[in-house]
Each structure stands twice: as C-alpha cells, then as structure tokens.
C-alpha cells in the first residue's frame, strides 16, 4: 500500500510514567487520613459491690459536684456554672489562704462527682475536663516552682511523679441518680 508505514515497533517513551505514578502517589497521600484518637484518659476503680462511703470523710475535704438531668451543676451545695468550676476546684485543692472550709492539704482533697442518668454526656465530659484541667494547672505551677519547667511529657518520670504526689488526682464517681429522663 502506498501509505504503508515503518513496520518497526515504535519505542514508547516511558519518561512520563514517573509523573503518572507521582500523581497517584500524591492522590493517596492527600486522601488517606490517619485517624488519630485522642481523649481523656481515666482509670476506673475496681468493681466492688459496696459503694465508697464519702460520709466518713471530713466535709471540708470533699469537693462535691453534682450534675442533674437539666445539665445544671451543684458544687458543694450551691448552684454553679461550668466556667467557674476550674478556678473553684483549684482554690479548693491548693487552699492558698488556709481557709477553714477548704481542703486541709492537697493530698487529702477528694473530688466527688455525681451525675444523673439523664445528664448529657457532653456536660459530663466538660465537667470532667474542667476538674482535670484544675489539676493540670496545679501540676504546672508546682513543676514550674520545683524544677522551673512546665509539667509535660518531656519531664523525667520521677519529677512527674513527685509533682503528682503533691497533688494526687482523686476523682471519685458515685453511682448516678435516676431522676431524669434518659
């Protein structure tokens, strides 16, 4: 035929293969999301049939927080807002002015948390978060005072322990009440 071409197989340029592969690589890099799980770490108490009896403790050493089904808070018998919880907890634990009605010593302070079965989980977690934040701030201050460094994971283990032993985190959770609607 007149139009007959060269019979030799033409060589395919493989130079752009790398670009195609790169494109795929970038696509996968962008679309895959590495799911990172973060949260508030809690150690639950060992199961026992008996309720811990907080009435044996001195009232001044107990910081009771109650959350009801309407998501309202009762802190040491009076209504409180969530945003003042952290400051109050800090003052209670450290008791800088040595007040008679606050904790005798930081290591005697006990935070008692009680909620209703109808309490919103979000409220519960916010309260828990605030209480934990109060301790973290205290640890930070103490660590700053003792070692001149903030309390973080970089701190050596024995230092962390020394700081935590001064302000041991005790959050005792009572069995929830059952007044609210679930």
């Amino acid at each position: 035929m007149a139009g007959s071409r060269n019979r030799q197989a033409p060589e395919i340029n493989a130079g752009s293969m790398a670009d195609i592969a790169f494109l795929l690589l970038i696509f996968f890099l962008v679309t895959t999301q590495i799911v990172e799980d973060k949260g508030i770490r809690v150690a639950l108490p060992v199961w026992s049939e008996e309720e811990p009896d907080i009435t044996k403790l001195k009232t001044r050493n107990v910081f009771s927080v109650l959350a009801n089904a309407q998501n309202q808070l009762l802190v040491r018998g009076e209504i409180a807002r969530i945003d003042e919880l952290r400051e109050r907890a800090k003052e209670f634990i450290a008791n800088p002015k040595k007040r008679e009605d606050l904790a005798e010593a930081p290591n005697k302070a006990i935070i008692s948390l009680k909620n209703d079965r109808g309490t919103n989980y979000e409220t519960y977690l916010t309260v828990y978060n605030e209480l934990k934040a109060a301790y973290t701030e205290l640890w930070n201050e103490e660590s700053q005072r003792m070692y001149g460094k903030p309390y973080s994971d970089d701190l050596p283990k024995n230092m962390k322990k020394a700081v935590r032993d001064k302000f041991p985190l005790v959050i005792s959770e009572a069995e929830p009440t059952n007044f609210g609607e679930e």
Partner: peptide
C-alpha cells in the same frame, strides 16, 4: 445521656477493663 454510658462503664469495670479513654 449518661444512662447508657454508665451501664457500659459498669460492665467494663465488672469485666476488669479499667483503662478507659473518653474520646474527644
């Protein structure tokens, strides 16, 4: 609401699974 969360927590305690993370 906390009801079901509490039930799960109690069951975890009874099963001896005490390290819990509240994902947030």
């Amino acid at each position: 609401t906390m009801g079901i969360v509490q039930d799960v927590k109690t069951k975890l305690r009874k099963s001896g699974q005490l390290i819990v993370n509240y994902s947030a």
